[in-house]
């Protein structure tokens, strides 16, 4: 489903990644680990095509980084859910509106949007917080909204960049359980983290270790 073939990508003064090769199958759970600045986020950005390789190619389903047109990128992103450490929720919209945005951009009907948003908010345990603004929620709840936003469009993969970075250990464990549950239903998940204790929470997950932009180990 996702393939990195001899990918090199550097940007600015940061190293980026060098000669990266790996692939992800449907329904897999993968951890990208390594120290800060190792290139974990770069790999995720290459997947949602916020960055493009200087050498090699990234293939996500039918989309190839070497020949994708700018116009096609939004359609790729509708197939890829994203979760960030800083949540990236819109502060002037409530939980429902934040989650529904993903479906409005994909031109869904209002009735379908309503159905899906309520279903996914119940799935992440926020059915009772629909009309709350992000500022009225805890960090863990905000991250659940971000997961709901990623999940509602039924993506083939969810990319989570340090999703527990701003959360306390207990909430982090809950969140990993939620991601695990989502993965069990068939959605591939790639989590970039340097928190090794989280990795142990998902026994069947594959581990890709990165250091200074290079993959040093895949298990």
């Amino acid at each position: 489903m996702i393939s990195f073939i001899n990918v090199n990508c550097t940007f600015g003064k940061k190293a980026g990644v060098k000669n990266v090769n790996f692939s992800v199958n449907s329904g897999e759970f993968i951890f990208l680990t390594g120290p800060s600045g190792a290139g974990k986020s770069t790999i995720l950005r290459l997947i949602y095509m916020d960055l493009f390789p200087e050498k090699g190619k990234v293939i996500i389903r039918n989309y190839n980084s070497n020949n994708i047109h700018d116009r096609e990128i939004p359609y790729l992103r509708r197939k890829v859910g994203m979760v960030f450490q800083d949540f990236r929720l819109l502060p002037d919209r409530n939980v429902y509106q934040n989650v529904a945005l993903s479906l409005y951009v994909s031109h869904y009907k209002t009735s379908e949007i309503k159905k899906r948003v309520y279903r996914v908010l119940n799935q992440v345990g926020l059915g009772h917080r629909v009309h709350y603004r992000p500022s009225e929620l805890s960090g863990g709840e905000q991250q659940r909204v971000a997961i709901a936003r990623a999940l509602v469009k039924e993506p083939v993969v969810i990319l989570a960049d340090e999703p527990t970075g701003n959360l306390d250990p207990r909430v982090s464990i809950d969140l990993m359980s939620l991601l695990n549950k989502i993965n069990k239903k068939g959605t591939a998940i790639i989590v970039a983290t340097h928190n090794y204790s989280l990795i142990q929470r998902i026994p069947g997950a594959r581990l890709i270790q990165i250091d200074e932009g290079e993959i040093v180990n895949i298990t």
């Binding site: 359609y75 992103r77 819109l90 945005l101 936003r149």
Partner: peptide, 8 residues
């Protein structure tokens, strides 16, 4: 954010 969720 709109770009990230796939808005044209």
């Amino acid at each position: 954010t709109m770009k990230l969720v796939g808005a044209t």
